[in-house]
Design a protein around this nucleic acid. Structure first.
Lengths: 346, 346
DNA sequence: TTGAAAGCGCTAACAA
DNA sequence: TTGTTAGCGCTTTCAA
């Protein structure tokens, strides 16, 4: 089944059918209806290869997650993010193609771009000094980052305010009266980890507190790393009264380390996480954390990219680069040592 | 950059360049070298849309996992499987496209097929009574299943011998002297869960044991479900001396339930898992389990599919349908109550 | 509002 | 072993 055959059945020309398929307004309403009926009757779907060749666009969007496959497929964070991207693509008639970066090599990226298999790229999470970015811009492949990318205001981003989120969490601990507050950071090659650490430090600084170096432990977002980091913190004298972990995963690891040492959360040490993943509410004790809309990030990023792709270059001014910054919110549960009198449970 | 331009630079015709790109043997070695040099110099990559249109094949393979996204992206099982598929595709010059099935609806599958975006499909895990399969065969989209599919010898499969794996695990428990052996099954809408239950029952039957109904608890592969199932088993009188869980996830849930009840593994109740995931070796106590090569399943399935795609229809006889069955092996650790005298640690 | 016609960049049959 | 040529099924001017 081809455009030509649909045209014959609908009693019009191939061009008209093409216009209907592409929502061109220059079609008489009656004609449009007739064509749509035939398309439906025949269960017709235009050949994507032919569309891509003639139209110079594939309607495929790539999603690049510069992390090992094992990370992508174990952290529920990515599942949620991908769901958001996929939903937006689906609504707009695009395909989302997860670009599985098998080797973290430079030429993988180049290959990705040269193949021209996709019209644009969604990338997350941003790395510090990602060698990818310059390549992409060279090749003029439209790109939306899910996360802040330092020093490049020319790339559209959709992001949550990590600095402010970490600040909210830390300020809550301060408000509860803790003064010896430690943090377990994410992997420091990621911009998000840097930002969350900054928010933590900002809050303490504003309270006139300068934490000792040993109170800042680096993790890698995983539960195991949170546990290890907490074990280190328990060795410090004096030990912290409260810990802000940059992810729920790590917060839960920290809780386990505390409990394994025979101490109680929050009575002996309070813990706050970040991300409000499903496991946070189920933890024992339920985890106080920072809620943000991960799925929405994916959705907005994909929408932003598709909008860009569908804007004729003529209408696109340089000032149009979008930077969306979503505000997170504090969710108070039990692990910080306070009942549910503050904050919002979504 | 197009074939035509490469041809001009290499001093030959477009067809010759095309032949070089497609590894056609009918090219003089000298010519081939010259063309390859120009291709490399120009960093040329043929336009995939044009290739797909002219060649009627896209070199894209779809991977369909009929499970919720949250499951796909949390169980390390899938990460490993996908890695295998992706590696094989990469080696053979194919793209692997993860088909994210957002809505588990019938028309999603139809859409997937009609779009003709991909040359073939890899599907796992097989469901009992999957409505997908008939659709696929209608549309003649080549397909390889990763897992057994009951009653359809005409579909190629790559699978591990789940029945035998479960039997090995159960026989090991029998050999250690346990007689009251229970099982926690996977989700019973999956063929693999059915098969593992069958292997368990076979082993007991051959030993002349007929387990009470309450010794068979249904889980859903997740740790939480394993915990719940084990809690049920602890209520049964007499309680089992040993438990075969159809996945490591569930085995670890079971261990936690046993320990939460103040009992010890393996002293009070022995536990055996299935899959030999990384977490199995790290569990406390380390988990006796069934090892099989998940990544290899993915690799072989993709290879099988690509071979089929590249076999001219004329050379393909109906008898060629491949059914690969990999044999799993027992890995003895501590959770079954025996030192490392049997079995193989890979 | 519609149709005719010229490609998009490649593959593959056929001819040389 | 190589070149010529006719499409693949669509989008997109341009003209009517």
């Amino acid at each position: 089944m081809t455009l030509e055959e649909i045209a014959r059945l609908a009693g019009c020309s191939r061009s008209t059918v093409s216009r209907v398929i592409n929502n061109d307004p220059n079609v008489r309403e009656e004609t449009r209806k007739r064509v749509l009926r035939v398309i439906r009757e025949q269960d017709f779907q235009p050949n994507p290869a032919a569309r891509a060749l003639a139209g110079r666009r594939s309607r495929v969007i790539g999603l690049v997650i510069p992390q090992p496959l094992s990370t992508i497929f174990s952290d529920p964070y990515f599942s949620t993010l991908i769901q958001g991207c996929a939903t937006a693509c689906d609504e707009r008639g695009y395909y989302l193609m997860l670009s599985l970066v098998l080797r973290q090599a430079d030429d993988t990226y180049r290959w990705l771009i040269r193949t021209r298999h996709m019209d644009g790229l969604l990338v997350a999470p941003p790395l510090m000094d990602d060698p990818f970015i310059p390549h992409l811009l060279d090749r003029c492949l439209p790109l939306v980052m899910m996360g802040r990318i330092p020093g490049r205001a020319d790339i559209p981003t959709v992001n949550i305010d990590n600095v402010n989120g970490a600040k909210l969490a830390t300020q809550h601990l301060l408000k509860l009266g803790y003064t010896r507050i430690a943090t377990i950071t994410g992997a420091m090659n990621l911009v998000g980890a840097i930002d969350r650490l900054e928010g933590f430090l900002n809050a303490l600084r504003e309270a006139g507190i300068d934490p000792p170096e040993e109170y800042i432990q680096e993790g890698d977002w995983s539960e195991a790393s949170g546990k290890r980091a907490m074990e280190n913190l328990l060795q410090v004298t004096p030990p912290p009264q409260a810990v802000f972990a940059a992810s729920d995963n790590m917060a839960i690891g920290a809780i386990k380390a505390i409990q394994a040492a025979g101490l109680r959360v929050p009575d002996d040490i309070a813990v706050v996480g970040f991300d409000n993943m499903p496991m946070a509410a189920m933890a024992d004790p339920p985890l106080t954390t920072i809620n943000h809309q991960i799925e929405r990030i994916g959705f907005l990023a994909a929408t932003t990219l598709i909008d860009r792709l569908e804007t004729p270059p003529a209408c696109m001014s340089d000032g149009d680069v979008q930077h969306v910054l979503l505000q997170p919110e504090l969710v108070v549960r039990m692990s910080c040592g306070q009942s549910l009198q503050h904050g919002v449970v979504p």
